[in-house]
Amino acid sequence: MELTLHVWRQAGPDQPGRMEIIRATGISEDMSFLEMLDKVNDDLIRDGVEPIHFDHDCREGICGTCSLMINGIAHGPEEGTTTCQLHMRSFQDGDSIYIEPWRSRAFPVIKDLVVDRSAFDRIMQAGGYVSINVGAAPDANSIPVPKEDADLAFDAAACIGCGACVASCPNGSAMLFVSAKIGHLAHLPQGRVEHERRLRAMVAQMDKEGFGPCSNHFECEAVCPKEISARFIGEMNRDFIRC
């Protein structure tokens, strides 16, 4: 495959950036999107050009490190898939592909496609935990949890904190991330105890970081690689209004 990449290049956090056109040649449709970038970088390095910087780690779709806005869609065109699990067979030979970093005031660009997502860490530090020592894993079923609650908690806990929800939201809102983290604990007896305090603290930190408000476009759940439902946003809204 041969592709025309339009890639955001930015030398550093305070440097101006711009879209650059880079040709990708010798690409196999069996490559993942990140392997395609690896190949492009090999060629760039051979030509003495600075390679494209991008975030990646596990490349198994479970760590939440990879990102990339691909043709305007977070993690690209495949549903429920991280960029590392996206394969080049999703594209056609000769395609133009626009690759941009997550765009959010709260996620400043560090270099090229790499953004600083520590705003998410600060939201978690504000209350995304259970503050008592619960010891080792208890015996199964020693604390009864209804099946529906266990399923909901697990669905929410699938969030890998990649930030695609923020990147795809027309308002740059982090509501899906925050509501998943809150919902994950709120549906379990151990997390329920501190629910209101956690909710207030995490929402306050979310606003402080400069994420936008939610206008119910539901773009977040559409691009979420873990397919987390925006029902958790509804639950967070309801509990916030009540508390």
Binding site: G72, G172, S173, G212, F218
Partner: peptide
Amino acid sequence: IKVWRDSAAARPIPYSHPGSVQTTFAARTM
């Protein structure tokens, strides 16, 4: 006005390639 201002501030640099999956025309033009 608050939602509009906060949303605009949350994404100072727009994407050069537009894209959306399931938002509606009505939602985008509120």
